[in-house]
């Protein structure tokens, strides 16, 4: 079994893994990081989106062995010292979640979107989130939340915020 070394949400792990083990199952079943859920088999839904070396990936479509040497951030790794990240806060403020199952993936995909475009238009947010499905919200409040977070992250109120 290959041995991998990954950093996840600030902690380092070394594990022997079966080659077929998906990153999302490694996170959930080996590391107990169940904040990242699985919603489909075909990389369509995006519920499992995490950041790998700073870029969004669907952790159901990456093998754990492929993540060897990488730095992975899940929704559980957001925020500093028990505070919430502006993106998380914006999702709350704008009522951008209902059942919340898609939310971890939505938040991570949204952070990736802002990495490349700090001030996205409504259309750019919609297109940037094309790989994340939500069945509850109709997306309208998600779009508002992302733009609200973008504004806040452009003009941070006193404190430095990074994903």
């Amino acid at each position: 079994m290959p041995r991998i070394r990954v950093e996840v949400d600030g902690a380092t792990y070394e594990d022997d893994v079966e080659p077929r083990l998906l990153l999302v199952h490694y996170l959930r079943e080996r590391l107990g990081k169940v904040g990242t859920p699985v919603g489909c088999d075909t990389s369509n839904c995006g519920a499992c989106t995490v950041l790998m070396d700073g870029m969004s990936v669907k952790s159901c479509s990456v093998l754990a062995v492929q993540a060897d040497g990488s730095d992975v951030t899940t929704v559980e790794g957001l925020g500093i010292d028990g505070t919430t990240h502006p993106m998380q806060r914006a999702f709350h403020e704008e009522h951008a979640l209902q059942c919340g199952y898609c939310t971890p993936g939505m938040i991570m995909a949204s952070l990736d979107l802002l990495r490349e475009n700090a001030d996205p238009s409504e259309t750019e947010v919609r297109e940037g989130l094309e790989g994340n499905l939500c069945r509850c919200t109709g997306y309208q409040n998600i779009v508002k939340a992302v733009r609200r977070a973008a504004k806040e992250m452009r003009e941070p109120a006193g404190q430095e915020v990074t994903p």
Partner: peptide
């Protein structure tokens, strides 16, 4: 061959592709 895996992974998960080995060129 495993490249980015974005086409292959769904096929593996659905067991529509059952290769003996993957050669990861990543």
């Amino acid at each position: 061959v495993l490249a980015g895996g974005q086409s292959l992974m769904p096929l593996l998960r659905l067991r529509l592709a059952i290769p003996d080995a993957l050669v990861d060129v990543g």
